[in-house]
């Protein structure tokens, strides 16, 4: 019961990743693309945790914390580039 439900939910997250990737490819402005990359990463985090339960290998969970942290770095880079025109380095 639990394992089939996890697979079906993983399919829902896969569908949402595909839809977000379409927006990330053709977004009209730069901001739309950055928002779509954020959403792709947050869906990927939940997908990875679900398959870490499904494969019964807890060491695979380590990946998700750097994933959540580095996408925030990408946000800050793009915000500073859009606001000032350079990164100040």
């Amino acid at each position: 019961m639990i394992w089939e439900l996890i697979l079906i939910i993983a399919l829902l997250y896969l569908a949402s990743i595909v839809l977000f990737t379409i927006i990330a490819f053709k977004g009209p402005t730069l901001g739309d693309q950055v928002l779509a990359i954020d959403a792709i990463t947050y869906a990927t985090i939940v997908l990875m945790v679900l398959f870490s339960i499904y494969f019964k290998e807890p060491i695979l969970t380590v990946v998700v914390i750097p994933l959540a942290l580095w996408v925030y770095a990408l946000d800050i880079y793009m915000a500073k580039y859009l606001e000032k025109g350079d990164l100040g380095a």
Partner: peptide, 21 residues
């Protein structure tokens, strides 16, 4: 821990992007 990190960092990131745009 990941839930807490996302809860704190994602609104800050989207606010920064909106301000930059």
């Amino acid at each position: 821990i990941t839930a807490l990190i996302v809860l704190f960092l994602a609104p800050a990131g989207s606010h920064a992007i909106a301000r930059g745009v």
